[in-house]
Design a protein around this nucleic acid. Structure first.
Lengths: 191, 191
DNA sequence: GTCTATACTGAGATAGAC
DNA sequence: GTCTATCTCAGTATAGAC
């Protein structure tokens, strides 16, 4: 363990794999792809990871940690629960460039692992669960306790659908339009 | 060309590939997988299709033709445009078993080809365009000509999102709930 | 001793010859 | 319709560098 002076090779591998898994998909990304980004030899990173699945686990763990930090930042910056939910909705706009080109990182990974029937599916779905419970918590705080989870799932589904079609049609204007509709929906639901 | 007494070998290959591409994904399905379903040798296979990409093209063409037939059936059975749009919404319920397990065949193929940066992307998106223009046509006939395309895209996105999350969480009840919300939305929009 | 690099094996895939 | 060439990939063995 080096005392975090520079990013460790392991962390570089995870970061590169994270990026490539998002842009190319998990199955379509080879060790050689990752190695060429990190600029290490291909055989080398068996010292850090025993298998490709282990890298995937590390990438998922990193994404979960990053998502938790993002949610905490939103809660810190927001005035209340309605603002928190708005931050989630606006994430689509903030990331519209990547979403247009590569889709939603959560949804596309979950869909790919489902088709591969991959053992890491529960881990990938943990990202969905994280967002689902966080959104439900804030809907409950806005007085929608009985159907907080249903509202959370509804909003998650809406944003997933927007990401899918924005990706298929490469349409950023569509993202902005749907984000406005979701904000109006939110205002109606919590008024 | 045999006079359609029995399904031709070529049609059997396309049907098997269609099914496997849906359930396993395109990249993860090999010639051997398809050949073992159709029970032909790989050499015979090569007589009908020169490459895997060619099979994909044939599968996409078959899906487009099948979708066009489905839309025509809906129009024939429906009382009016509102009924047509309801048929589209209820497709989620009709196919809920497959959607729960494998997602939406249109959306998952489009997403996979996007990640692979595959040349057949435009063909796969043609399926989306087919639904989009068909829905927009019926919204226009219901007096929503100015925003008919936006309404069509909105509904397409909603159903894509429902399929994605139903697949991730393996939740059929969620599909039924969201379908009801979409039907209520439709009633409001066209009233 | 921690990290890195080179060389190799075997599985599974497409493509194609015969 | 069998049989083979070739390619890419994950994974391993092992030795060298700091």
């Amino acid at each position: 363990m080096s005392p975090m002076a520079e990013p460790s090779t392991r962390a570089e591998i995870v970061a590169a794999a994270d990026d490539l898994f998002y842009r190319q998909g998990y199955a379509h990304t080879s060790f050689a792809d990752i190695a060429s980004v990190v600029e290490i030899s291909r055989g080398n990173f068996y010292h850090h990871f025993k298998s490709k699945d282990e890298i995937l686990d590390a990438v998922i763990a990193a994404r979960i940690a990053e998502t938790e930090r993002m949610l905490a930042r939103w809660e810190h910056a927001a005035k209340g629960s309605a603002d928190c939910i708005r931050s989630f909705i606006r994430l689509l706009v903030a990331n519209r460039g990547d979403i247009k080109r590569f889709g939603c990182p959560v949804g596309t990974l979950s869909a790919e692992l489902a088709k591969l029937d991959h053992p890491a599916q529960p881990g990938a779905n943990q990202l969905f669960i994280l967002l689902r419970t966080w959104l439900a918590k804030h809907f409950a705080q806005l007085g929608r306790k009985p159907d907080a989870d249903a509202l959370a799932l509804h909003l998650l589904a809406r944003s997933q659908g927007v990401a899918s079609l924005a990706n298929a049609f490469h349409d950023e204007a569509f993202i902005r339009r749907e984000v406005r509709l979701m904000e109006e929906w939110l205002d109606r639901e919590i008024s």
